[in-house]
Design a protein around this nucleic acid. Structure first.
Lengths: 360, 360
DNA sequence: CGGCTCAATGTTAACGGTCACATTGACGGT
DNA sequence: ACCGTCAATGTGACCGTTAACATTGAGCCG
């Protein structure tokens, strides 16, 4: 243990101790070639003795790259965003980058967040902006050249402004929604309601849109949608409205939490799941396998999204890329909350639809 | 919009444009007094025109403080750690600090994480280390002067090594466990089992320890504990073992997720909750209010923990402190998963204990 | 009216690295 | 013996700030 003097030892301290120039120390630290091995040894020993550690700040300033990426997230403590955050951070570090996080709680802070991170001189920026409103403020600021939108895929990818042309990575929401609804259709349901997420969320938009499209292309009619706020309570509160839809036998909930609330609401009314109503969720949160009944849902691999995002950023920064795809494929997880209509103990208001093909 | 030249404009560019020295620009940027107001105006205008933003890196290097705090977390995607992370980050930013995160997945990486963050020259370090093993590696590294352990409160706060003397903030786990068990005792339960978390987690240790102590001081006997891994599945798997405990009428689960799995396991066996078995959880995750039945549990305010942690760090850094307490008080949330033994529809293996005082 | 004070500004040196270029020898070919 | 080449190392400037000290000039007082 070296007696820590006034300050942390610098490269010059090491150089002096090893009897070389600071530049040679730099070379050793950065493994450059053309160092005689005994010199290297001497320097390494001095480093060891002094407990020297290179100063990342100074290095960043001189080198022009901070090896840090900024992570701007419209926070909320929702399962999806949270896990993407984690995914990005881990993937970034694996590539040798530190992640500096800025969690905003309202879209107004977005602009501030970008400025903040730019002032921090992050090399790249990953933006987790699940709501449309958040992106609007992006138009007003200068974005760093390496920038990705993580998990904000609007249904209409049109337009060509500076924002629309930003690269995006995320789970293929449309596919996920299609899987969910098709599963219900294949089970024989003909009136499938949708318990939607807040309309200003991209994911909610896509899931709703694709629910509609899938029903239409199967020749089925789509009733009204009930809108929740992602939280379980809003699913619970939606129960009445959903049951009021004539002939409804299944509900596609935009996330697992609302599905949980709905299940709660249904069971409070003595209705059986999937006997009286089939329910499909979205996200596959760790709890959903143990709901009563276990929830059929759409699994999303957020870790993979994080990796894809970082990979794309590295590519932009001119580093090696693994060529990860930008659209992560979701998977349908069939559990016990779905069945053919009319199947099961009770039988409330279900259209006696044609018997469906098996539920695998 | 200024045409962005080769590089981002620096203080000298602004100085030249405003016809002053770079130092004057620095003064304007940092609001120092003794600037003639017309000079200030001129500088501000130059800043505006050039789109100048101060370089945080350079500032940090020169000033010796980076205004960033490091956030080392043994990641896992568990509810508690995740939310503390969020809490700390938000509180930090509110104090003008950026947070640089380092999520480790195994205790081995802890040391690397500290070095990494120290190299990044963070001013302070918040460590979220929920397992005992993680802390061991802390003994081998030099910690920055401002350092807090967030949410790692071992039951035996003894010892006085460099680690034991680190300041800690967190939710009062012992109190939380006591509230849960006392609630069951007050409801008339006399054989209260414990579904514990992994033994190497601090929180699991304290909750188990306090469960034991509370039973003892009430003159009740504590049976064996069943150990899970926090996940719902482990709660489900524990069902059999818990039911095998003679006379058991209630279970104190160490977290909500395992409680959920247990509820699932019980209902699979046709047992009613709380009729046949009362269940109490811990954490109050957003879902637990909508379990079937809604879960009685212990609520923890992680946001408050984050704030307390940052407050403590600021204090260490010599900045103003709000004097936040270091132990956050948890709250018992009584829902429908607990009742007096023998109450409810069914009545499996319950000791016909004395009728209990009401459940609030 | 000389000298003092003090506000307003400029000058120079850090901070701790990297980069571009200069300087040394040793070696090999002719 | 001479020169070019190249590996190994040293030198000085620079990255964009802040800190410490120097300089200027105006206002005030005796």
């Amino acid at each position: 243990m070296p007696a820590p003097r006034g300050h942390a030892p610098s490269m010059r301290d090491v150089a002096q101790r090893a009897g070389v120039s600071h530049q040679t120390v730099s070379r050793v630290v950065n493994d450059s070639p053309n160092i005689r091995s005994d010199t290297r040894e001497r320097v390494l020993q001095a480093i060891e003795e002094l407990g020297y550690r290179p100063n990342g700040l100074a290095r960043a300033l001189a080198h022009g790259r901070s090896r840090r990426i900024g992570l701007l997230m419209e926070s909320s403590s929702h399962y999806g965003p949270m896990n993407m955050l984690r995914g990005v951070e881990i993937a970034a570090r694996r590539a040798g980058y530190a992640a500096t996080t800025f969690g905003v709680t309202s879209p107004d802070e977005f602009e501030e967040g970008i400025d903040f991170l730019r002032d921090q001189r992050v090399d790249a920026l990953a933006i987790i902006a699940p709501r449309a409103q958040s992106l609007e403020s992006l138009a007003r600021v200068t974005l760093p050249p390496a920038c990705v939108l993580v998990g904000s895929m609007p249904p209409d990818a049109g337009g060509s402004g500076p924002i629309e042309s930003l690269p995006r990575v995320g789970v293929d929401q449309a596919l996920g929604a299609r899987l969910a609804v098709q599963h219900l259709i294949a089970s024989g349901h003909r009136t499938i309601a949708h318990l939607a997420g807040p309309a200003d969320w991209f994911d909610a938009q896509v899931r709703r849109h694709e629910w509609l499209r899938t029903l239409e292309s199967a020749g089925l009619e789509a009733g009204p949608t009930v809108e929740g706020d992602w939280r379980p309570q809003s699913g619970y509160d939606a129960t009445e409205a959903l049951l009021a839809i004539p002939g409804v036998t299944a509900v596609f909930a935009a996330n697992d939490q609302m599905a949980l609330g709905l299940i709660h609401g249904l069971s409070d009314r003595g209705l059986a799941i999937p006997g009286d109503l089939s329910v499909v969720g979205f996200d596959d949160i760790p709890e959903s396998a143990h709901f009563r009944p276990p929830l059929t849902t759409v699994h999303q691999d957020f870790q993979a999204v994080g990796e894809a995002a970082v990979d794309l950023l590295l590519q932009r920064l001119g580093e090696a890329s693994h060529g990860t795809p930008q659209q992560i494929v979701p998977e349908l997880v069939v559990r016990a909350s779905t069945a053919s209509p009319g199947h099961g103990p009770s039988g409330a208001g279900g259209t006696p639809a044609a018997e469906a093909p098996g539920v695998r």
